[in-house]
Design a binder for these strands. Structure first.
Lengths: 122, 122
DNA sequence: CCATCATACTACGACAGACATAGTACGACA
DNA sequence: TGTCGTACTATGTCTGTCGTAGTATGATGG
């Protein structure tokens, strides 16, 4: 409780991952750490969610993978965003702004309806 | 395209419905019309989604139903929000504010990362 | 030297909410 | 008489998320 439920984030995990790939390729573990840090520990993506997002997005052509040796001699799978991925990312950003606008109309932390829309009779 | 995808709204349909019940009981058809109107036609809830939300929320004790004769002599199933429903609604509102804050950090309609967080190395 | 930790994944199956499709029923209206 | 708007119910599918589990390696510490 008090955290962010996955149903809410659903559909935006991909967007968050793509954001982190805009500048440079990255890999699973790093991305998960970045999400955790950038959200101030408020959101921690599950490993399975993350890796299945990679698979799905590669299949959709939003990212491409390549294997590379890390400093420590371990092999890692890096992901790079594609042009289609950038387009998709921008679309999701537009959609987010719209969604935010719409949902916010139904939000009232005090639990009371605004005077202005008490009158909706349709 | 250009609309609001259901995966985003997922988990907030219930919240929108509960908002509309805060003041007075209502029923399926009216609620769907209100959502459509309040969102400026930007979001139209599917009938099946709506009615399955009713069933789910009644089972969870967030709303209760009663049947009533409408002006036109037709029987309608009305729903009334319960105390548990109000509590749940307020929680979802809090959650929404948090979610909004977090997701917004990963949103950039221009498709470029902000200078300030180019440095995330973890 | 062996254990434990952090890293870096893969596999499998379950679940829940949203949705497509379809059908029922009734009153109004033309 | 037929179509439109209203007011639902039933059934099954899909997809993203998540629980659980397991594998493998290098680094760290006692």
């Amino acid at each position: 409780m008090g955290g962010i439920s996955s149903d809410v984030i659903r559909g935006y995990n991909d967007t968050m991952i793509l954001y982190l790939l805009l500048d440079r390729p990255s890999y699973g573990y790093e991305i998960s750490k970045m999400i955790r840090a950038m959200s101030d520990e408020k959101y921690v993506i599950k490993e399975t969610t993350l890796y299945s997002a990679f698979t799905r997005m590669e299949k959709n052509g939003f990212i491409e993978s390549f294997s590379q040796m890390a400093d420590n001699g371990k092999r890692r799978t890096y992901y790079r965003i594609t042009e289609a991925g950038r387009r998709y990312y921008r679309e999701k950003c537009e959609e987010w702004l719209l969604t935010q606008e719409v949902i916010s109309k139904f939000i009232s932390p005090q639990g009371t309806r605004a005077l202005r829309d008490r009158e909706w009779r349709v």
